[in-house]
Amino acid sequence: MKNIKTLIAAFIAGLGLLSFTAINHDKKEAQKETVSTVKGYEVGDEATDFKLKNIDGKMVSLSDFKTAKGFIVIFTCNHCPYAKKYEDRIIELDKKYKSQGYPVIAINPNDPNVQPEDGYQQMIERAKQKGFTFPYLVDEGQKIYPQYGATKTPHVFVLQKENGKNIVKYIGAIDNNYDNPNDVSEYYAQDAVNALIKGEPVKMTKTVAIGCTIKVKK
């Protein structure tokens, strides 16, 4: 009888160990998946092209811009107070650099089921209201922003064309004062593009993006 009890206890302990091992394995796999999902690009990486719907209903890819020397890709949205503060500055970036080969490409990464203000129709209305001069694309399915590693709106990625590839040259904030453009003392995105136009290395290649978190359906 004693031997039977010992065997039963050992069996239960074995099941517990297997369960613990399985749980730990699942946690580790989940952690790996999370890390790989949010890692995104680093400076020097090649950014893959995409095909996203613009507010005019047409699909837009980086490859459509045959004469572009690079791009100012900005993940932004309608509702975020930080994004709203930067809208006029984003328009100015496009007006200043599009003619020099670096157009702005804006992408809304948010799930409209989480934040209805960032729906497609609302994007159309906002772009018309503000007079956007650049493509305003919707990241349907939220597949592009994780590739880039965007975490905020706005979040900037300056790309340069090199041998047919789009190479990441700068990641981060537009400048160092979201609240008041008159108090800006560091123009990160502009400085990066200016350096590329001059054929010089970008001095400040990465800064911390300040903005709202990207809204993801749970």
Results as ranks from 00 to 15, higher is better:
residue 213 T to Y: 10
residue 103 P to D: 12
residue 114 V to P: 05
residue 69 K to F: 06
residue 140 E to L: 11
residue 174 I to F: 02
residue 115 Q to F: 01
residue 156 V to A: 05
residue 172 G to V: 13
residue 159 L to S: 02
residue 216 V to E: 05
residue 54 N to G: 13
residue 162 E to V: 15
residue 166 N to D: 15
residue 43 V to W: 12
residue 103 P to K: 10
residue 208 V to L: 06
residue 23 I to P: 01
residue 110 N to L: 08
residue 152 K to P: 02
residue 167 I to L: 02
residue 97 Y to H: 07
residue 50 F to C: 10
residue 98 K to Y: 05
residue 31 Q to Y: 01
residue 193 V to W: 01
residue 211 G to K: 11
residue 141 G to N: 02
residue 12 I to E: 08
residue 56 D to W: 06
residue 190 Q to L: 02
residue 141 G to Y: 02
residue 50 F to Q: 09
residue 139 D to Q: 04
residue 215 K to W: 07
residue 41 Y to N: 10
residue 151 T to P: 03
residue 66 K to F: 07
residue 122 Q to E: 08
residue 24 N to V: 01
residue 150 A to H: 04
residue 181 P to V: 02
residue 25 H to P: 00
residue 110 N to Q: 08
residue 209 A to W: 09
residue 50 F to I: 12
residue 61 S to A: 09
residue 217 K to D: 13
residue 73 V to W: 07
residue 76 T to D: 01
residue 144 I to S: 00
residue 9 A to K: 15
residue 21 T to H: 05
residue 76 T to L: 00
residue 170 Y to T: 07
residue 89 R to A: 05
residue 72 I to E: 06
residue 110 N to K: 04
residue 204 M to R: 08
residue 143 K to V: 15
residue 165 K to R: 14
residue 79 H to E: 12
residue 21 T to L: 12
residue 93 L to C: 03
residue 193 V to Q: 00
residue 101 G to V: 01
residue 195 A to M: 02
residue 27 K to W: 00
residue 122 Q to R: 03
residue 14 G to Y: 03
residue 101 G to S: 01
residue 192 A to H: 00
residue 165 K to S: 14
residue 175 D to C: 12
residue 192 A to P: 00
residue 58 K to M: 02
residue 6 T to Q: 14
residue 214 I to K: 04
residue 81 P to R: 09
residue 108 N to F: 12
residue 82 Y to H: 13
residue 134 F to P: 04
residue 177 N to F: 09
residue 100 Q to I: 02
residue 67 T to P: 07
residue 211 G to M: 10
residue 72 I to A: 05
residue 29 E to H: 07
residue 31 Q to V: 01
residue 167 I to G: 00
residue 19 S to T: 14
residue 137 L to W: 07
residue 24 N to L: 06
residue 67 T to G: 06
residue 29 E to S: 11
residue 3 N to G: 00
residue 142 Q to Y: 12
residue 138 V to A: 15
residue 45 D to I: 05
residue 139 D to E: 03
residue 214 I to Q: 01
residue 215 K to E: 08
residue 81 P to W: 10
residue 174 I to S: 03
residue 65 F to K: 14
residue 114 V to C: 04
residue 217 K to T: 11
residue 22 A to V: 15
residue 29 E to N: 09
residue 8 I to H: 04
residue 77 C to P: 04
residue 199 G to L: 09
residue 111 D to Y: 03
